[in-house]
């Protein structure tokens, strides 16, 4: 791997979102993540602009870069047209490619995220899909959603959906030839390689932590230590 800063510079989100920062803190003032986490996007852009690989490596290994919600509120308000949210996307990408994501609790969430979304996209053609939305993991969706999931086919039929049906419509079955094309796109554009990379680094880390990969995934999905939060 080249120097980390040079790697960042190749990322188009970085090209778009990184210019000189005057450290004004406007991004932090409007940031929903800073509302909740010990998080300061101003500081992240400031660290990156030191071009100091040691500090960048620390960032890539930390929880900090995973706190952002990618809402891009910062981009609208920055007086220098920076997008800390875009810089974060480039940092996350690099953290995944270097395997440094497994060093932080929030970074380790890449395993459940990659597994869930690649399965939903490649098996069903959707990012979110009823069959993989387990109500027990989503109790915030309320008793009404439990009712809906309990009567899924009938409730969807009542609302005019075409669940698993042929032809167009809501929640239609995506034809196999379209799913095959998505798989080919994953293969050609690096998503398939990304999946193996996340699996490989997560497996190594799980062993280091003395856990099975399944235990590691479950913990990443649901456990939060309380070091992340604002007072």
């Amino acid at each position: 791997m080249n120097h980390l800063f040079e790697e960042l510079e190749k990322d188009y989100r970085f090209k778009e979102g990184y210019h000189s920062c005057i450290n004004c803190g406007t991004c932090t003032a409007v940031c929903p993540a800073a509302e909740f986490y010990r998080y300061d996007p101003r500081k992240i852009v400031d660290i990156v602009q030191t071009r100091d690989d040691r500090q960048i490596e620390e960032l890539l290994s930390s929880d900090t870069i995973w706190y952002c919600g990618e809402c891009m509120s910062c981009l609208t308000r920055c007086p220098r047209k920076n997008g800390p949210g875009l810089v974060i996307m480039a940092l996350r990408d690099l953290s995944i490619r270097t395997g440094l994501f497994t060093r932080s609790e929030k970074g380790r969430q890449m395993l459940p995220l990659t597994r869930t979304f690649s399965r939903n996209i490649l098996e069903f053609g959707y990012c979110v899909y009823p069959e993989t939305f387990d109500w027990n993991d989503h109790k915030e969706s309320g008793p009404v959603w439990k009712w809906h999931m309990d009567h899924l086919e009938k409730s969807l039929e009542r609302l005019g959906a075409n669940y698993k049906g042929d032809g167009p419509g809501v929640l239609r079955r995506i034809p196999q030839e379209s799913l095959d094309e998505l798989k080919a796109i994953f293969d050609v554009t690096g998503a398939t390689e990304r999946i193996s990379l996340v699996e490989k680094y997560s497996q190594q880390k799980a062993e280091e932590m003395g856990m099975s990969l399944e235990e590691y995934e479950k913990k990443a999905f649901e456990y939060s230590s309380d070091k992340h939060f604002n007072e």
């Binding site: 990322d11 188009y12 989100r13 990618e70 996307m89 996350r92 990408d93 995944i96 890449m110 995220l113 990659t114 869930t116 979304f117 690649s118 939903n120 996209i121 990012c127 796109i185 994953f186 554009t189 690096g190 998503a191 990304r194």
Partner: peptide, 11 residues
């Protein structure tokens, strides 16, 4: 998936 960082930008 893209904004959950689960797929690369080119994908």
């Amino acid at each position: 998936a893209y904004h959950c960082d689960a797929i690369p930008q080119e994908t």
